[in-house]
Write a protein that binds this DNA or RNA. Structure first.
Length: 280
DNA sequence: AAACCTACCTGATCGC
DNA sequence: TGCGATCAGGTAGGTT
């Protein structure tokens, strides 16, 4: 599921219900998600107050009383949904259930179980193996044309795959890379090196725009994504190329019967959608 | 180092 | 209706 806009949407929804609340009970229904949960995970969270919720790339980072950071990654199909208690009987794939002192119930459900959680001392955050190598936050000041160009310079791989690399820029996934490259008019098969420079200059604000618009829409709901209140996002209605193989692209004025419309190719094992006429 | 490939897991969909 | 193949928003870890 979730790329940066979806994770940010979930973070905001959770923050409204969790910040300042105390976790009075944590039900853990299995020992592992993608990776084993940390030792004593539920016990260490129980009784603690939630201080604040931040996001880095696609990670939700929750500061918890006692100098702890509770890290959540939603993987492909994870969701964190908040409902008023009392808790209903756990549904299929409800792996963890968190109860607050004011009666809310937060359920982590993850069909494919590609998500994971960690709980560590905040002093270890910089060095955390999943955080330390991340590239700049695309909505922050650290993401700019000069830096992106430097990371693309000399790279022979396709720009599509490089933008999915969380070390190049953090938080983008398959949907938003396709959409950003479309808006920038950049052919996804071009090398990173060829995009460094003027094209990178154009790409930076476009990436920001796409992400901000998607956040404003509550993310994109395809198969599994739901916001923390269980509602769907609606940015999927704004896709220009993603999932539109054979149809006209967002600004299409050509004869799809002749051009074939939006193309779908595979790059590094992932589907790429693009318009060969508008992306060069 | 960089580019590519596979594994992880479940469910939906499609062709036969 | 059933069955296998394929595909899905992500990342780690392995191999060239």
């Amino acid at each position: 599921m979730p790329e940066l806009p979806e994770v940010e949407t979930v973070r905001r929804g959770l923050a409204m219900k969790l910040e300042g609340r105390r976790l009075v009970r944590v039900d853990q229904h299995r020992p592992d998600l993608r990776f084993p949960l940390p030792a004593d995970f539920a016990r260490r969270l129980t009784g603690r107050q939630v201080l604040s919720l931040d996001r880095r790339a696609k990670y939700i980072l929750i500061r918890v009383e006692g100098g702890l950071v509770w890290m959540i990654h939603l993987g492909m199909s994870g969701s964190m949904v908040v409902k008023p208690g009392p808790a209903a009987a756990p549904a299929a794939h409800d792996h963890l259930v968190f109860h607050t002192d004011d009666g809310w119930v937060v359920t982590y459900n993850d069909i494919r179980r590609f998500g994971f959680m960690d709980l560590f001392d905040e002093t270890g955050m910089e060095a955390h193996p999943m955080l330390s190598a991340l590239g700049p936050e695309p909505l922050g000041n650290g993401f700019h044309a000069a830096g992106l160009s430097a990371r693309l310079a000399g790279r022979a791989g396709p720009i599509k795959s490089l933008l999915l690399d969380q070390k190049v820029v953090a938080g983008l996934g398959n949907i938003y890379v396709c959409e950003a490259l479309y808006r920038a008019g950049i052919d996804p098969t071009r090398t990173g090196a060829s995009v460094a420079g003027a094209d990178a200059e154009r790409l930076v604000p476009i990436i920001r725009d796409v992400l901000n618009e998607a956040i404003a829409a509550g993310g994109s709901s395809l198969r599994d994504f739901v916001q923390s209140d269980g509602e769907l996002g609606y940015f999927q209605h704004s896709f220009q190329v993603y999932g539109r193989e054979g149809e006209g692209c967002g600004r299409c004025d050509c004869d799809v019967g002749v051009t074939g419309g939006v193309a779908r190719i595979t790059q590094a094992g992932r589907s790429t959608f693009f318009c060969a006429r508008r992306q060069r």
